[in-house]
Design a protein around this nucleic acid. Structure first.
Length: 234
DNA sequence: CGGGAATCGAGGCTTACTTCA
DNA sequence: TTTGAAGTAAGCCTCGATTCC
């Protein structure tokens, strides 16, 4: 990790910014959205960097992303101070047309993953539902996507997976409920039949009774529920 | 209209830094 | 002066809800 950084981190930087903490920024964002104000972050900067021959900085994107924080540009203070003119542009700073194959017309561009990309992502999801940064980067490289896009895909995939699981659980519980209701009905009916019949095994309250559990056909003395439970699991 | 990629906002966790006893 | 605990800011990440193509 450190190689490129060590080799290239010869930048001169002078900055002045007015802004708050993360939480303050969060609140500010909210306020700005409500008031439709301009962001209150003010930036003044001077930066100087030496070109690095082995630099992996992509020409088609934003150098600050690669250098600083490719995935969360809005969270980078560097980015905040000098680039973050529009609030909440997680992914949507101006993009070049060759960004990911389509043309960018200023609005939110919707990417459609190819079948191969989806298949590889699915395969990867089967192996692990969350990604380490290294896995994310590796996948992004393989798929020619941005790490953030891979991350978003996994995020949505987890959500879909959870939703599906909830549906399955719901169906299962429904089935359980039906089975138990049936069983309950059956037992009630059985009890009613036993009560209405003149069976010597079932007597009224207050008398010592010999009970025959109809389900397991075990004879049980006394009316202790605990005793019955020992013999019968119903 | 539905599926799914992208965004938003909130909150948890970790790390670095500061303050204070 | 040193040290450890407590407090705070910032960054990173995930999640649920929502937007929008």
């Amino acid at each position: 990790m450190g190689d490129i950084e060590e080799a290239c981190n010869t930048g001169l930087f002078l900055g002045l910014s007015v802004g708050g903490s993360t939480t303050k920024r969060k609140e500010e964002k909210k306020k700005n959205k409500q008031n439709n104000d301009a962001p209150s972050t003010v930036g003044l900067g001077l930066s100087f960097s030496i070109n690095c021959s082995s630099s992996k900085v992509e020409a088609d994107d934003h150098p600050w992303d690669s250098i600083n924080n490719a995935e969360y540009p809005a969270r980078s203070s560097f980015h905040n101070s000098f680039v973050d003119q529009s609030p909440d542009d997680h992914i949507s700073p101006p993009r070049t047309s060759n960004d990911d194959g389509g043309d960018f017309n200023g609005g939110r561009k919707k990417l459609r993953l190819t079948r191969e990309q989806s298949a590889l992502l699915e395969e990867s999801f089967k192996l692990h539902t969350t990604l380490t940064p290294a896995q994310k980067q590796s996948l992004a490289d393989q798929l020619k996507l941005k790490p953030r896009q891979v991350e978003v895909w996994f995020q949505n995939r987890r959500a879909r997976s959870k939703l599906k699981q909830t549906e399955v659980d719901c169906q299962f519980l429904k089935k359980c409920c039906e089975t138990l209701s049936d069983e309950n009905r059956r037992l009630k009916k059985e009890l009613q039949e036993l009560r209405s019949s003149s069976s010597p095994y079932v007597q009224g309250p207050g008398t010592a009774a010999v009970m025959l559990c109809p389900s397991c056909e075990e004879l049980t003395r006394g009316n202790s529920e605990a005793t019955r439970k020992e013999n019968c699991d119903i």
